[in-house]
């Protein structure tokens, strides 16, 4: 299995040329090869959502994607959601509303929420709860997470969901 193939990962607006094994999962490429450890791993069965990132603006569980499948696709991780030293409205809202405790689910939750708001900028509480049902949180009881997403939607309306790293591909 040591045969490697070249792949170009375009992450947060930066191109990385890597030689990877075809079996390498995208989440491990991000974490182990690129050191982008804000994307977490919480399960082996694609249930938890801790690994959620954006591929061409859509929220995807990066543990279900091979690195080679992401060749040339615009990827956004939690590290690239806002431009340096700034917070995306969702990040702001998760912090303000205490939408996190241990924080392990948080990056995936925020990326999933950004994907949700990109498709539905003004969701109802129910739509948020169902939209995020693929992201598990064991700490918070979800209440503040839902509040944060609704507050972020209110704060920024249509602007929410667009990554600040300037890549194309987000459908608002």
């Amino acid at each position: 299995m040591s045969k490697t193939v070249p792949v170009t990962l375009n992450v947060n607006g930066v191109e990385h040329h890597l030689e990877v094994e075809p079996r390498l999962l995208l989440v491990h490429a991000l974490r182990d090869n690129l050191g982008l450890t804000g994307t977490h791993v919480g399960c082996d069965t694609s249930n938890c959502g801790a690994c959620t990132i954006h591929m061409d603006g859509r929220a995807v569980k990066s543990c279900t994607v091979l690195a080679v499948q992401a060749d040339g696709v615009a990827l956004t991780t939690i590290e690239g959601l806002a431009s340096e030293n700034e917070l995306h409205p969702l990040q702001e809202a998760f912090w303000n509303d205490h939408g996190l405790q241990c924080g392990y689910c948080t990056p995936g939750m925020i990326m999933a929420a950004a994907g949700l708001l990109a498709e539905n900028p003004n969701p109802t509480e129910d739509e948020v709860r169902h939209g995020l049902e693929g992201n598990l949180c064991r700490c918070t009881g979800y209440h503040n997470i839902v509040k944060a997403v609704l507050d972020a939607a209110k704060a920024k309306g249509a602007a929410v969901g667009a990554p600040a790293s300037g890549q194309p591909g987000v459908t608002a």
Partner: peptide, 21 residues
């Protein structure tokens, strides 16, 4: 008071055990 490590956690900067280089 807002969680003091909140910023690190919402930006993905908070490092968990496996994530040390």
């Amino acid at each position: 008071v807002d969680r003091v490590e909140g910023r690190a956690k919402v930006t993905g900067q908070a490092k968990y055990a496996y994530e040390y280089r």
